[in-house]
């Protein structure tokens, strides 16, 4: 199917509403978003729709983005920090086709960033919206399988069992080994799962000037962290929260303060570490940074 034949004068797909979802659905999602922003960290149920991609590929995030996006917005989509992976490319193209909005790979230029697994390395600014795709919104799920019971635990702020999970980590492995989806306490009230971002990114959620929205399509939940909200990672006094560290800098741009992916390069077991945030890495290379160019961060 050629795109040109299906695009009407407004630059969007003929027969479809702006940004794919109908206006009633968008209103329903916006109501859920407003409630989520009003109660930071609280999971608001919403009537998640079927989307033209499978569960687990970002149906929640896509619905939140569709409900927020306007004609003036500039959209960036990342998957594991990268702009050029299949999922990121198709979601970006989806909105370019159905909403006709401008897209970008640059963090600074984007007004809405839909993400899976990462928060961009470049600090976000006021006015930006970060949309997370969330697979399992319930932080207590693996400890308490009953939805009725987890809702009650949230309502009563009965969160002792959350620390039991961290206790088990230390008892078995000598340290808190949870490295992603690390539970946080939002605004001193709700314990929240930050979706599968690495705990490296947890401190970035705290007092972030951008609005952070979380959409779980399959589980039909929306939650949010409004700008400048307190977000604390749970820990023990004698085992404080720590983020991941690497022994070597990024092999491409030489950065030492960013989250690195381990990439296997051949069958002989050789590997390299490079930035997972491709925009951040490319920007540093363009600015003349690199392993040979000396260290700036």
């Amino acid at each position: 199917m050629s795109a040109a034949t299906n695009i009407d004068g407004g630059g969007t797909l003929a027969g479809y509403n702006f940004a794919y979802l109908d206006e009633q659905t968008k209103r329903m999602i916006r109501r859920a978003l407003l409630k989520a922003v009003a109660i930071p960290g609280y999971q608001v149920p919403f009537a998640s729709r079927d989307m033209p991609l499978p569960y687990g590929w970002g149906t929640g995030g896509i619905q939140v983005t569709a409900a927020c996006i306007g004609q003036e917005d500039v959209l960036k989509v990342i998957d594991q920090g990268a702009d050029d992976t299949t999922n990121a490319v198709s979601i970006r193209r989806f909105f370019a086709t159905t909403a006709g909005v401008a897209t970008t790979e640059r963090t600074v230029e984007a007004s809405i960033i839909q993400t899976r697994h990462r928060i961009p390395e470049k600090p976000l600014t006021e006015g930006q919206i970060l949309v997370y795709q969330v697979p399992i919104p319930e932080p207590l799920r693996f400890l308490e399988p009953r939805e009725r019971e987890t809702r009650k635990l949230h309502a009563l702020a009965d969160y002792g069992v959350m620390h039991v999970r961290l206790y088990e980590d230390i008892a078995r492995l000598g340290r808190i080994a949870t490295s992603y989806s690390y539970p946080v306490l939002v605004n001193d009230r709700y314990v929240m799962s930050p979706s599968p971002i690495p705990k490296f990114d947890n401190p970035k959620m705290h007092m972030n000037p951008a609005l952070q929205l979380f959409g779980a399509g399959r589980e039909k939940r929306i939650y949010a962290i409004p700008p400048f909200t307190k977000v604390v990672s749970l820990d023990f006094e004698d085992h404080p929260f720590e983020i991941q560290k690497w022994d070597e800098p990024c092999a491409i741009c030489g950065a030492t303060g960013s989250y690195l992916d381990e990439v296997v390069t051949d069958d002989a077991g050789n590997r390299m570490f490079c930035c997972s945030d491709t925009d951040h890495c490319a920007e540093r290379v363009a600015a003349g940074e690199g392993p040979g160019a000396g260290e700036s961060r």
Binding site: D158, Y159, G160, V164, Y167, E237, D238
Partner: peptide
């Protein structure tokens, strides 16, 4: 668990 539920935070 009970200790943690009432606020013990020292492993």
């Amino acid at each position: 668990e009970r200790l943690m539920a009432v606020g013990a935070r020292h492993y």
